[in-house]
Design a protein around this nucleic acid. Structure first.
Lengths: 125, 125
DNA sequence: TGCTGATATGCAGGCGGGTCGATGCTGCTG
DNA sequence: CAGCAGCATCGACCCGCCTGCATATCAGCA
């Protein structure tokens, strides 16, 4: 998996058909599945939840290992996957790496799953 | 995996905290991850899309193998996973098994991911 | 400069999952 | 009743992923 991060960005493009409407293309299905795969893990869901509910909406790795009960390399691994999926953004301040949610990333995924609210299908086929 | 279908039902209960708000519990994260895992596959996303856009909102296995390019056992396997996750329902009429979407299943998942837009949006004007 | 602490990366083991061919099961039909 | 068609299940293979240990990298500090 190279650049899954771009997948979410591309899916936000209006021409990408969501789950509802016409049958989605093979490539679109793979992109959406890639982002969902990043979400479909208990540890990563808890990471997102922990970061989102952190004091400033951000957290460093050292704050996340203990609540998860996972080793530091494993936590870094999951954070990397979430970042590459476009769900988290990383900012390094000094020795610490602070992670925070990409503002509308998860909402975008939810919108892709939600049935269309009467959107004109400009799909030419 | 035993009864993932109940997972979605339990998560629709209001006491289950979604991704936003307080940190989710380990058990809730595993339940939500289980349903997301059922979604996080290109073949299954396309199956949902195909069934949803079928003439009567339903389709049998024989209609789905060709568009997916997968063998019949594989398609049945994916349909089984989606059904156990509570996303599809199966009705057998004669020799055929018709699958259709569980009405609000996917929307429920989308709601679990979406932050509550009423409170907690500190940046919301 | 050398040391310490916070992260990231490499590597390996183990497990779960996607796929297919073969087979069993069940209604329809001649 | 026998044959057939649609579907589910079984067994097996292979690949990807989660995890931890060991190690590398980097920034701050004495």
């Amino acid at each position: 998996m190279e650049n899954v991060g771009t997948a979410l960005a591309e899916m936000t493009m209006p021409q990408i058909s969501p789950l509802a409407g016409e049958p989605i293309e093979r490539a679109d299905a793979e992109r959406l599945a890639g982002v969902l795969k990043a979400l479909a893990d208990p540890a990563r869901l808890r990471l997102l939840s922990l970061i989102q509910s952190a004091p400033e909406g951000e957290a460093c790795v050292c704050d996340l290992t203990a609540p998860l009960g996972l080793s530091q390399p494993t936590v870094s691994h999951h954070l990397r996957i979430l970042t590459e999926a476009g769900l988290l953004e990383r900012e390094k301040r000094g020795v610490w790496a602070y992670y925070r949610l990409v503002p509308t990333a998860i909402a975008t995924i939810a919108d892709l799953l939600t049935p269309p609210r009467k959107r004109a299908t400009k799909k030419a086929r």
